[in-house]
């Protein structure tokens, strides 16, 4: 299903799938004509743009990716309630903090996904990444124990991401 060597017919299978779904969502229909058009776009556009790019990121384990997405959704919900309580509560009790998280993940897509996940979940926003891509600088709204937080973020998000992207 996901060949190691990229096929010439479908150079970017996941981009094709995404294009197909987005086209149908934009038109909000399942009419036969639109499905045909979506299939055509999903085949033609990746074929046209694939030569512009070096090294396509591949998803090795799609089911794990789905589970990861559900985990992040749940964490967004929890994060929102936490942040709401902090915002509405007394502000002189919060201890904001800058921390640096060491990165094990190497690929562009992996780092982007990790930083975005950090931004969306409990009380942290990723601010900057070091030039050698080994450290991610994060601002936390309320921080009691930085080491515990770093460990948790790495275990919860980085390990599954590494497994999903296979790097």
């Amino acid at each position: 299903m996901f060949p190691a060597k990229e096929s010439r017919f479908l150079p970017m299978p996941f981009h094709s799938l995404l294009l197909f779904i987005v086209w149908l969502l934009l038109n909000n229909t399942l009419a036969f004509g639109h499905i045909l058009l979506a299939l055509f776009f999903a085949w033609a556009i990746p074929k046209l743009v694939s030569m512009l790019k070096h090294g396509h990121p591949t998803i090795k384990k799609p089911w794990l990716a789905l589970r990861y997405a559900l985990l992040v959704m749940k964490d967004i919900l929890v994060a929102n309630i936490e942040v709401a309580l902090i915002v509405l509560g007394p502000l002189n009790k919060i201890h904001p903090s800058f921390i640096a998280i060491p990165l094990d993940i190497k690929s562009d897509l992996g780092v982007t996904l990790f930083a975005s996940t950090i931004s969306l979940t409990p009380g942290t926003v990723s601010t900057e990444i070091s030039e050698d891509r080994k450290w991610l600088y994060v601002h936390a709204l309320h921080m009691d124990d930085p080491e515990q937080m770093i460990k948790e973020a790495k275990e919860r998000y980085e390990v599954p991401l590494k497994e999903i992207l296979g790097c």
Binding site: P96, I129, E131
Partner: peptide, 21 residues
Amino acid sequence: PAIERTKGQELMEQANRQAPP
């Protein structure tokens, strides 16, 4: 500037230079 009680403020300058901490 971040507010005074922010911890790890020494990291801000390094983050701006994109240097490792």
